[in-house]
């Protein structure tokens, strides 16, 4: 499949040999993208397109500023660029707001994902490698976080800190630390007794080297597979908070906020709500689908071991 090729950064190893080889190259070689279904290919393409549009929104010719009125109030959709999804109650282009909302959401969610991955992988490696106290601590944290609805955690934090892009990013970043830690921990524990780790240790490799150079590369496929669905979860959480009025402060465009804003006029202008809905549903669908695809690949690999 052609869309897969864009991700295929190494051609060094045939897939069935990859397990025997060690290190980062092998880990990346295990993430090939062949045999995606049409829906999976669509999802990959959609996400690439979304990222490109969001990144280069400023350079799209003719796209108006999302925060300034551009036409009539609540104008129905028409076949012009800015009017494609219609205009909102203040006459702003909904398409433009959807695109700039995508940029805002993607930046926040990506930053939050980086935060949770870095913290989660670090904690998970400590817990899986040293076990004992570190493991108990990480388990307690992960259990606690999963016992509370994400929206409630953030609401509790926001009730004292107030809302801003920074607090939103940081609080979203806390949510998935436990999940990444738990997955990393499980992976480290299962890899720990494999021959290649024992061999590395017999050769005198220290804890840091074994963890970073030997074990972590083998966890890359598993960890990569959970990133898209977790990001989808963050997008939903962020959208929910914006919908409830505790998200990014106005007038910055956000999908959840746009949906909430259009509900006041929904009985008169039902068409105006579909732009942001389409954006969030497609994005979440694409992320989940890519996640399933990656998970299936990991599954196949695991069974071949």
């Amino acid at each position: 499949m052609t869309p897969g090729k864009t991700h295929d950064t190494t051609t060094a190893l045939p897939p069935h040999r990859a397990e025997l080889a060690r290190g980062w190259r092998a880990g990346i070689a295990r993430m090939r993208f062949p045999q995606s279904s049409p829906l999976e290919a669509f999802s990959i393409l959609f996400l690439i397109g979304l990222v490109l549009i969001a990144a280069f929104a400023d350079f799209i010719p003719g796209l108006v500023n999302p925060n300034f009125p551009y036409g009539d109030f609540s104008a129905p959709p028409n076949w012009t660029l800015n009017g494609l999804f219609g205009t909102d109650g203040l006459g702003r282009s909904i398409l433009s707001r959807v695109i700039y909302g995508a940029r805002q959401t993607l930046i926040i969610v990506t930053a939050a994902t980086v935060i949770s991955m870095v913290c989660g992988i670090f904690l998970g490696m400590l817990a899986g490698y040293f076990r004992g106290f570190a493991e108990h601590g990480v388990d307690l944290f992960a259990n606690t976080m999963s016992s509370l609805p994400p929206v409630l955690i953030i609401l509790a934090l926001v009730s004292v800190t107030g809302t801003s892009v920074l607090t939103m990013t940081l609080t979203l970043g806390i949510l998935d630390i436990g999940t990444y830690a738990r997955i990393t921990k499980g992976g480290v524990i299962s890899q720990n007794d494999r021959d290649y780790v024992l061999a590395a240790r017999a050769l005198g490799a220290g804890h840091g080297r074994v963890l970073l150079r030997e074990i972590l590369p083998n966890l890359v496929p598993t960890l990569t597979a959970v990133v898209p669905p977790l990001m989808a979860g963050l997008i939903i959480t962020e959208g929910s908070l914006s919908f409830l009025g505790f998200g990014i402060p106005a007038p910055a465009p956000s999908w959840g906020g746009m949906i909430a804003g259009s509900t006041d006029l929904i009985s008169r202008f039902p068409l105006l709500i579909f732009g942001p809905i389409l954006a969030i549903v497609l994005t979440v669908y694409a992320l989940n689908t890519v996640g399933d695809f990656l998970a299936r690949r990991v599954d196949i690999r695991e069974r071949q071991l």
Partner: peptide
Amino acid sequence: RFAASAMLAVPTFVSVVVLSLLFSI
């Protein structure tokens, strides 16, 4: 299966809007 994965992509704040639009409006 496709319907299920599509439904999983619908956040609650979307389903409340769409379903109330449909059934009560």
